[in-house]
């Protein structure tokens, strides 16, 4: 998996690259829009992380140019402005995801990973992690043969975590996908819901599946 990071702020570019490399991605860095277009032409990338504010041609310009060239590489936009309209504008221009600055690194990595899986997303109707299964047609969850009662929100949370099993899910991402919030509500809603869900799926079992990564988010997986 190869990622192009387009970011003019050198320090940010550097730790984003390091984090992606640590997660097993190959990462290239460009510091301006024109270099990014040239790089995207020369190399097929799996994901492009694109800052909107760039010297010269800005991120949205680069994105439009890419799409005009029929380049459909998934694009994650970064922006320090973080306006709702900008998000809509970016998505309309053909971006696949949008992350306002300041972002958490784990959140960024999780989103990049989600974009690489977008094409080959787990579309099966029965999701499974260890002995926990979720039937997305019957809306039925069970672990070790025992039925788990879930409210609709808990169900959506579990489905999201199971579809991203093994991957870190940031709080922002959970709020977006499960609650459809595109703002930070400034509450510990996610943490409280996860705690409840954990009681339902993990409390009676030796092997814990739902893990907290402090300061970053949650991950559902068999090994701790």
């Amino acid at each position: 998996m190869r990622v192009l990071v387009v970011e003019d702020e050198k320090k940010t570019a550097s730790f984003v690259r390091k984090a992606l490399q640590a997660e097993g991605f190959a990462a290239d860095v460009c510091h301006n829009g024109d270099d990014a277009l040239a790089a995207a032409k020369a190399t097929p990338f799996d994901v492009i992380v694109l800052d909107i504010m760039l010297p010269g041609r800005d991120g949205l310009g680069v994105l439009k140019q890419l799409r005009e060239r029929k380049n459909s590489t998934p694009v994650l936009l970064l922006s320090a402005r973080g306006e709702v309209n900008e998000r809509v504008e970016g998505l309309n221009a053909g971006a696949d995801d949008y992350l306002p600055k300041p972002f958490e690194l784990s959140e960024l990595v999780a989103r990049v990973r989600a974009l690489t899986r977008r094409n080959g997303e787990n579309k099966s109707t029965i999701l499974r992690v260890a002995d926990l299964t979720l039937d997305t047609v019957a809306h039925y969850a069970q672990r070790g043969g025992k039925k788990i009662e879930l409210t609709s929100r808990e169900y959506r949370l579990l489905e999201f975590l199971m579809r991203s099993a093994g991957r870190l899910c940031g709080r922002m991402m959970i709020l977006e996908k499960v609650w459809d919030y595109n703002f930070d509500p400034g509450t510990n809603l996610v943490d409280v819901y996860v705690r409840r869900l954990r009681e339902k799926i993990d409390a009676d079992f030796e092997i814990k599946l739902l893990h907290t990564v402090r300061g970053s988010g949650y991950v559902l997986k068999e090994q701790p």
């Binding site: 702020e9 940010t12 730790f15 984090a19 600055k101 300041p102 690194l105 784990s106 970053s216």
Partner: peptide
């Protein structure tokens, strides 16, 4: 952003 990223 830098502070958060560096700490992480």
């Amino acid at each position: 952003t830098v502070l958060c990223g560096e700490t992480e």
